[in-house]
């Protein structure tokens, strides 16, 4: 009885927690009437546009490092030629979405949690309710959709920049000609490689904004409460991305 309870209690709590988050996400996603055009645009700028530099830099260095690794690793079995193809596939399917997602998690989940947490603590969220406005619809909906819509674009840009990073290293120091490298990148790449990465991006965009909103809206009291909410949001977003990536990769490619 006792061991069963020891397992059952936390299991129940986790299940209930997941249920609550799912319900929160559903409420956030359906609040699109009336369409929050201006708020959505504002959030797309905050979440998507302003993340471009960090995602681009991450992709550039990752693509470059990947090219070096595959070149030196591939040399062990005389397969250095595959550098462009593997960089492209690795970036597009895995590293573009995952690393882009993690960078956005650090930047966006924290700022959403801090902003909404501050609003919670200073009673701005209560004030919304007294002004007959649903805080979820007003604050959460535009952020969730901005994450879902922005992240695939960020991933696409990251893919291109990552492949360019590989190209820079490949042509600069690994002895590839520009034309061979580019054709090597394209020839093995299949549409599904790209699409699956973009779908991952959309899911990660939801994971990041959802954890920012969830922890921000439930922030504890005072500055310390906001601090804890911010930390929790980033950790949950990062772990959530890695877990979702594993599940999606399994679904897409097994």
């Amino acid at each position: 009885m006792t061991p069963l309870r020891a397992v059952g209690r936390p299991a129940l709590r986790v299940t209930r927690g997941i249920g609550a988050v799912a319900l929160f996400a559903a409420r956030g996603l359906v609040g699109l009437r009336p369409f929050p055009g201006r708020a959505l645009l504002h959030q797309i700028i905050q979440i998507g546009w302003l993340s471009l530099p960090v995602v681009g830099l991450t992709a550039l260095f990752t693509g470059a490092a990947l090219a070096l690794q595959i070149h030196s690793g591939g040399a062990r079995f005389q397969a250095s030629d595959v550098v462009p193809a593997i960089v492209a596939i690795g970036m597009v399917r895995e590293l573009g979405p995952v690393l882009g997602g993690l960078m956005v998690a650090a930047r966006v989940a924290s700022s959403i949690a801090a902003e909404l947490g501050t609003m919670r603590v200073t009673e701005q969220i209560d004030a919304l309710v007294t002004l007959s406005t649903d805080p979820v619809r007003w604050l959460v909906t535009p952020r969730l959709w901005a994450g879902i819509l922005s992240m695939p674009v960020l991933v696409a840009v990251g893919d291109i920049i990552g492949i360019m990073g590989g190209w820079l290293v490949g042509t600069g120091s690994l002895g590839f000609s520009s034309a061979t490298y580019i054709s090597g990148s394209w020839s093995y790449l299949e549409p599904w490689d790209v699409t699956s990465g973009l779908i991952k991006g959309a899911v990660f965009g939801l994971v990041v904004t959802l954890s920012g909103c969830w922890f921000g809206m439930r922030s504890g009291r005072g500055a310390a409460g906001v601090g804890r909410a911010t930390t929790s949001a980033v950790v949950a977003a990062a772990v959530g991305i890695l877990a979702a990536n594993f599940i999606l990769t399994g679904l897409f490619f097994e």
Binding site: Q124, A127, T130, L131, S132
Partner: peptide, 26 residues
């Protein structure tokens, strides 16, 4: 709530809106 107004302890003005936008929120 449709016929209700409240002054919060810390005023709870929305940081992202200007003063008149706060007042005119409803």
């Amino acid at each position: 709530l449709a016929g209700f107004g409240m002054l919060f302890q810390g005023a709870a003005l929305f940081d992202s809106l200007s003063v008149w936008q706060n007042v005119a929120f409803r």
